[in-house]
């Protein structure tokens, strides 16, 4: 399945921090940790956005990738592909590639549409429509 558009949501995880021996994070135990509340709220907002995009578009139209900043490196190949496909200004592309933005960050087809806070779904729809239904 090749989707027309990509939405990459970069947000922190409320369970993946730290490691135990050779396994990462606190897992389900993290739910008990009160100091994760800020991160958890932000993750909840990202979840809301994820659901809204998914409700509106099918998987064949939009691929949504939600990832933690520490695993960002694994999404770089995909990002490079997007940046090359939807060519934008060099400096802005470079900043996107290096994730030189505050998280949570939302990247649509290589273009950052939300930084430091989760944007409303309308902002994304506008950007997505350009590639899904051009003209």
């Amino acid at each position: 399945m090749i989707s027309v558009s990509t939405v990459i949501i970069v947000r922190e995880s409320d369970s993946g921090s730290g490691c135990i021996c050779c396994s990462g994070g606190m897992g389900e135990h993290a739910k008990k940790e009160p100091s994760y509340s800020g991160i958890r709220a932000s993750a909840g907002e990202c979840g809301r956005l994820h659901r809204e995009i998914r409700d509106r578009y099918g998987e064949e139209e939009v691929e949504i990738i939600q990832i933690e900043p520490k695993d960002y490196i694994y999404v770089v190949p995909r990002l490079i592909k997007d940046l090359l496909k939807h060519r934008g200004p060099f400096l802005s592309s470079l900043r996107t590639l290096l994730l030189w933005y505050p998280v949570p960050a939302v990247i649509v087809n290589g273009k950052v549409v939300g930084k430091g806070k989760v944007p409303g779904a309308e902002v994304l729809y506008e950007e997505l429509e350009k590639t899904i239904r051009p003209g």
Partner: peptide, 17 residues
Amino acid sequence: YDGQNYFPTNKWVLFGH
């Protein structure tokens, strides 16, 4: 699916994670 803890993820991205 809830978009927060349960959501489909690209194979290679999940592999990295």
